[in-house]
Design a protein around this nucleic acid. Structure first.
Lengths: 316, 316
DNA sequence: GTGAAAGCGCTAACAG
DNA sequence: CTGTTAGCGCTTTCAC
């Protein structure tokens, strides 16, 4: 009788409170959720929780969600659309109030299931037209990276992408890179990290040649920080020095990249802003009188953080 | 009528299957859980999800848990016993089948609540006598670190601890360090990372003096990898070179420490083994006919990974 | 084999 | 302000 709905006298209130204490009573969410047909739960889908960028985001969501009396279910999808759909199905069975996708395959049926069940969803950190979404402006971010390298004097810049990045993000970051390059009349180049990460020494050597050859690449703009750090490993494994021989810029702004030993120049995504806006968009659609209407998109400005993985090109 | 319990004819079965398809029926876990008085859910408490060591563990648990048809609720406790108790309370209201603690304050009431509700719990990655527990042998790990440094010729070795490490782990790692040092007739020293991480330049300088002074420290054994990496940052910020002037060993074996730029020598904890044994202990107690009996403890052997943050001492 | 019935612990709606 | 009542969608038990 006393669950925060005020119409009760102080005396009865106390009597009940005492009994709660005496009997060790604990309310049963299972029953409450059943009658409300909705659990006080939000589901978070993440591609790879071991990637610190997503882990940090997940943590921010957990903290905010539990402040708002929600518990957080986490599902790891490994970026697999099939798994993703399965997990969403499970979340729906569990009656989640809302779903946060920290990574989204773009697979349509996932959104169909969600909207059929009238469960709001927000996609965070990658752009998605069809739903509420909050993400960093990938174009602006890559433009800032290219601009920084251009100002240092670099003209032959390659974009590095790879399987660690999901499809839509990969595409928009490359698009941003390409546009920024062309704006300077430069020819965009693209490399796939998978080639030298396979452990094939030939591929690593090839990477070196790309830099060493006359008119070779002088700077790399990687699709994310992890790829940037691995790229530095690969380059230095081949005897090239960063930033002396070649510059590297990352994307995300993960903490590891900030340690002095690495000192990665990067385009940082403001994580708390992503989490704050993401949860705001979601809760607005979870209220008793939810906000309705077409997908809303929040674009957040990324921030270039200059450290010491970039420098003017050494050899014209 | 058809939820995996065979007493039904093939014809009816098919009829039901068709209807499921036609009506877009989705089973409702909320109702099932209510009648079973237990949700197919396991709660995971983690001190800091942004710490990649715990994020990786959480991921491993999620993958294994969802294979076993469980969904995972994640709670971040920030190492605060009050929050921890609150989250456990919430998990109990939600009727979780079991609880995994990736970090445990050691606070008794938490265990009392859990056992009163007859919800099994397993503590993973830190030692806990009172419950099922799987953890690395901290003593052996620190002993391996000390042994490695000793073999390189180090005699004045300091242990670095700090608030990033929870109480019980901190204690047992230091105990392991102390014992290993004394076994060699060496005097153990202990430093708190908090002193120089406060941003106080005086403290950083003091750290340098500890190394530079005649008969100063030649090697550090840190309580975990993050502290080790930050220590390297602090040392190198003071003009000391690792490993030329001073060696550093970490503990955990997080991925970041493996990148060439950092190359931290560390005592690695086998994460999949922790997760596998942890979930095994838990599920054995979650079965319809659960394993009963006193707390069971699994101790896992850590592995020394030698990279290039350690070398023979440079100066006496 | 199959259908009917009871009830898990709660909330909401209403009568006192 | 307080007590009573009717389900939420499922599982389990029991009669058919």
């Amino acid at each position: 009788v006393i669950r925060r709905s005020g119409r009760v006298s102080a005396a009865t209130r106390q009597r009940v409170l005492d009994s709660i204490e005496a009997l060790g009573y604990r309310p049963n969410s299972l029953a409450r959720d059943l009658v409300r047909r909705r659990a006080n739960t939000i589901g978070v889908l993440v591609g790879d929780l071991a990637n610190t960028f997503y882990a940090e985001l997940a943590k921010l969501f957990e903290v905010r969600a539990s402040d708002a009396e929600y518990t957080m279910i986490v599902c790891n999808t490994d970026g697999d659309p099939g798994l993703e759909l399965g997990r969403v199905e499970t979340l729906l069975e569990r009656g989640v109030s809302g779903v946060v996708m920290l990574q989204f395959s773009g697979h349509g049926p996932v959104l169909d299931q969600l909207s059929a069940a009238r469960v709001p969803v927000v996609v965070v950190s990658c752009w998605e037209e069809r739903t509420d979404c909050v993400a960093v402006d990938d174009h602006a971010g890559m433009a800032a990276a290219v601009e920084h390298l251009y100002d240092l004097g670099h003209r032959r810049i390659a974009h590095v992408t790879g399987p660690l990045l999901e499809e839509s993000t990969r595409a928009s970051r490359y698009a941003g890179f390409e546009r920024a390059m062309r704006a300077h009349g430069l020819e965009p180049q693209r490399l796939d990290a998978a080639t030298w990460e396979g452990g094939d020494p030939g591929a690593a050597r090839q990477l070196r040649e790309l830099v060493r050859q006359p008119g070779g690449i002088t700077a790399f703009a990687a699709g994310n920080d992890i790829m940037a750090v691995r790229l530095i490993d690969a380059l230095e494994g081949e005897g090239l020095l960063v930033p002396r021989d070649v510059s590297v810029v990352g994307f995300d702004g993960i903490e590891l990249a900030g340690y002095a030993r690495i000192g990665l120049t990067t385009v940082s995504q403001p994580r708390s802003a992503l989490a704050a806006h993401g949860l705001a968009l979601l809760t607005e659609r979870m209220r008793p009188q939810p906000v309705v209407g077409p997908p809303r998109h929040v674009q957040i400005a990324p921030q270039l953080v200059v450290r010491h993985s970039t420098a003017p090109p050494g050899r014209g």
